[in-house]
Amino acid sequence: DCQPLIYGNLTHETWPASTHPGVSFVKSKAFLYKNWSGHITEVYDPLRTVSVLEPGGPGGCKEFRRELVETTAKTRKCVIAQNCGFFNTHTGQCLGNIVSDGRQVKNSGGVQNAQFGIREDGTLVFGYLSEEEVLDRINPFVQLVSGVVWLLRSGKVYIEESIRAECEKTQETGNLQRFVDVISARTAVGHDTEGRLILFHVDGKTDTRGMNLWEVAELLKEHGVINAINLDGGGSSTYVLNGSLANFPSDECEDKSWYCPRAVSTVLCVHERLCQPEDCSQHGTCVNGQCECQPGWAAPTCANLTCQPSACGEHGLCTSDGCVCDAGWRGVNCSQECTAGFYGDECKKTCTCVNGGSCDPVRGRCTCRAGFHGDSCEQECPLGFYGLHCLQECQCSDLCPCDPVSGSCNATFRSERNTSLHRAGHCLAIQMWKEWREQEKPYLSEQSWVVITATLAAVLLTSLIGNLIQVCGKCKGRPQQEYSYVPLKEVNGPRDSPNRSTMQPAKALFQ
């Protein structure tokens, strides 16, 4: 309600952040001017190189932690780190809005103090924000921290307006006015016309040395800063360069002979560019904002493998080492079977099959030719068996082995086997005899021969019986004749003396 009309209803300013592409991303200059000493730091690519850090790391605000800026800076390898947010020095509680690397740490509920933030699209935001704007999800803040007093708005000092806007309770006005006017150590953040983020700090001691906010605003304005807000100062004002304290803190140590840096709350950190994703998908190293992927993983995020799963076909697996082929397959895209004689992973194993057996390219199992068996096809079929796997039984005679391939009975095929020579000879004889018998076909069948033989036998038997009957009949009809022997010359004697002769029956002549 109380801001000048020239700003309309807008209570904050935005500016596109610089996206300096070079390797260099930060430049810090120390200054010693009048009685002032401090540093002005220019950050070229703030979206990728600036982070608001919780004390000691993530979760520090929830634990109400306070840590030295050096300690917190080490958690993120900050090249330059400064204190930033306000906090309760008694309890350690972080105050205001805090978004750290896209993570909402603390929402103040729209507290009316100057804010500095970086949105996801790289927009730098300075000014007053409602709770709805803080929680915007369309273009959310990736970094956000609260300060007190908007020093410069659009190139003009904006302190008076800030006092009215940030302190509506009359009784507190005096405190805020003193806060602005007193000289002390100061810390601030702003941006220039090129969108570079400007970190500022000046050493001091409250009421003794240092700068008031008017002087800070003027110095920043002279340096080309467009918008800037004031951050925590006094003894909290700390500047750390490459992990080491590089300013003069104003809090006394316990022994009061030295000055000591204060353990503070949040830290504004300038680091090397972050990668997207920050851990390079755990398959690469982030170097100046670019993921350098491990072999086999594809840029820019290192989330995908170099080879595409489809490129490895049905017989391969896409891995970080390229296509890894299944056992029995080879080639860049695993499309070729192992060459003959090899099998297994990467076709590195040698087949052991002999006698013409083929090798299974996956496990190396032998497929034997007909007539052979065994793990390596090293054995011929045992006698009496033939064919694939020697499972078929020969139909040859006992003495005649069969061909182990075709199963045909053959006497010569085993000639090379000494143990079979004798059997083969017998087999050959039997074969020849069988062939001869087949060639010698009889004119009459065996049955015919049986009939003929039987008939002849019957005739012979009949004849024999007839003769016996006849002989027996004569023996019974007349007595036994006596025989006498007469010399032949008597038989051939003179014819005229037939009386001398005693004629004998004709039978006797025959004798």
Binding site: T11, F86, F87, N88, T89, L95, G96, S108, G109, G110, V111, Q112, N113, Y128, L129, S130, E131, E132, E133, S146, V148, V149, E166, C167, E168, K169, Q171, E172, N175, L176, F179, V182, S184, A185, K205, T206, D232, G233, G234, G235, S236, P249, S250, D251, E252, C253, E254, D255, K256, W258, C260, P261, R262, A263
Partner: peptide, 29 residues
């Protein structure tokens, strides 16, 4: 024993009683 601790003596408080903003809030109307 060489660690030195700050005495938090150089306090620069913008608001009385606290070290930080603790007052009105803005809402979108």
């Amino acid at each position: 024993k060489h660690v030195r601790h700050s005495m938090d003596d150089d306090l620069l408080l913008p608001y009385a009683g606290t070290h930080g903003p603790s007052h009105s809030h803005r809402h979108v109307r």
